[in-house]
Nucleic acid binder design. Sequence first.
DNA 1: GTTAGCACTCTCATATATTGAGTGCTAAAG
DNA 2: CTTTAGCACTCAATATATGAGAGTGCTAAC
Lengths: 354, 354
Amino acid sequence: MSNGTPKQSVEALNDREREILNAVVNSYIMTAEPVGSRTVVKRFGFDLSAATVRNVMADLEEQGFLQQVHTSSGRVPTDLGYRYYVDHLMHVQRLSLQERRRIEGEFQNRLDDVNAVLRHTSHLLALVTHQAGIAELPDSGQTRVQRFELMPVGENRLAVLMVDNFGTVHSMTALLGTAIEAPRLESLTNFLNHNFTGTSIGSLTESVRLKVGELLDEQRSLAQSTLEILDIMPMPREKRLFLEGTVQLFEQPEFQRLDQAKEVFGLLEEHDRLIDLLRKAVSDGEGKAIYISNCDDNMGSEGIGVVASSYHVEGKPAGLIGVLGPRRMPYSRLTSVVQYTADMVGRLLTRLGK
Amino acid sequence: MSNGTPKQSVEALNDREREILNAVVNSYIMTAEPVGSRTVVKRFGFDLSAATVRNVMADLEEQGFLQQVHTSSGRVPTDLGYRYYVDHLMHVQRLSLQERRRIEGEFQNRLDDVNAVLRHTSHLLALVTHQAGIAELPDSGQTRVQRFELMPVGENRLAVLMVDNFGTVHSMTALLGTAIEAPRLESLTNFLNHNFTGTSIGSLTESVRLKVGELLDEQRSLAQSTLEILDIMPMPREKRLFLEGTVQLFEQPEFQRLDQAKEVFGLLEEHDRLIDLLRKAVSDGEGKAIYISNCDDNMGSEGIGVVASSYHVEGKPAGLIGVLGPRRMPYSRLTSVVQYTADMVGRLLTRLGK
DNA sequence: GTTAGCACTCTCATATATTGAGTGCTAAAG
DNA sequence: CTTTAGCACTCAATATATGAGAGTGCTAAC
């Protein structure tokens, strides 16, 4: 209604508008420079005059897809512009055979450990995309207990070891009030293995709690001990993601300004927020899993973009991987890289999980 | 001899020179601005005229302690100037009771795990000093094997668990060529525990290799298996240090220039280089453990300073902690903070190591 | 609907003057 | 011989003017 408000009501653009928007975004992605009307006709061979393009661009600006950094400079895509580009204009670039080979090749060696796989993944993503590569560890709902082992450590400390279905060993230390004697320890171990093998890590505490209620009196004390241990034991609050290639980000022209750079730097330190962004990408991006920062959600993540994809283990979504870079990123290429990599990771981990 | 060469031959400064150098360094540490002669007399109440101070400062420059960023600006300490300040001028500021209380208080809770202790330490250092806090894990020579445990994982994988004297559980996975049957596994475990309990982690592989030579034929095959496992098993190449508070660095005015900032950022990513710097500090600093970047050793660490201290476990140096910041740091305060913290950490870990 | 033309705007780079902090040097005072 | 006052000089930082270049919006003509 009012002056500056874009009329999004009819989001349908006509062919010419779409073509020009596409051109502007593409040009901006490549050069990081504001795009003018002349540039558009020249670089993309439009059979139109600059003046015409100018008119169209003015329309696009009115509709909120483009933006002038100042009166009379070229135009730059807004977040809405990117969104439209990503959702309707961009045609996902298939990976060349060469690129696919490269990714596959990188996954050939040493695949014996979930951590190794995902560290490698983040590294690979960073390498191939020249952005920051992120890889989240599998959801604790997807990893299941395969076996418990208890080891006394010192007088009143107990190491609780748990192997999950991926073969990763989780170790936690519990400080006990009273020492536990050897035979009791053994029966406790048996009790744990007998009752909780196959339980997902995420619901472990819950399961134990439930089980205790069901039990006969004879086993009650065992169960009680279990609870005691699990209560004291800090739940595996381990590293949740791998992050690599962050230095590359600061090569990008948009992060040359120090305030921007500092913001991103802060973001990279907070892994929880990174994971939130990945999640947001997957849910926002209608299958394309692209998040583009907009000023609305003030997550302190202005000016960045995220391409993410979830990897599946045994058919179920287990975790996320992705890349983070400036808002101006070659999404058309990145989406396929990320998706392909996610495929590989999923297949690998499925095999690893037997 | 030649023009610009400072005559370090007689490093002895007279009282006035020392006082003025001290004033300049102190002023620069506080303000991060080049210091002029007038500033010195005013801020430090010298009973001299600016002109006199000017002459002295010119002398100090000739001797290589001060430096002009350009003809006719105030002076700034050189690395040599800092070095002299740290070694001869600075009087270590004792910690206030309040500060000591704070540090002690922070170490009261949850001290059940080496990792937790050191993560906490780096965090604390960052918090108290407003610089980047670093804490290295105990030297692998100091941590000794307390117990082994072997668990089969899947068909041909073996989880090797090792508890060290601090109660930390190290777990590694070894991929085996052939499956190992249960009884053999047990004897292997016994073999390991019997022979290698008490060995330091650092020399473990070495010890095993030696032992194999000494053994009778009957036990030979066991030893052989051990070697096989240890060879395949990647040696605990775990996280070696904790690092926190890095964001604060970029508040400092010296890291406002992007090229400088990027350099430091790169340095922070490379943990090996950080540890080298800590070591360097401890060996350079004649008991004060302060490293000041100078252009000579081109470690890519221009413009930074490090205050470090080693913590001792059972009387022997086990690891390093410290802070990293711009070269201009309030060393007089930091040294005591770091040393006091190192004391605490050492005591804590000694208790933990029984 | 499209285009050419033109006036206008704004950034960027360059040149120029001004100010202020600080220096080096010299000559006089202690 | 040491200290100081005075003065000319240097240099960074700031503001100011200027022109070029890129790009726009608008209007009138095709």
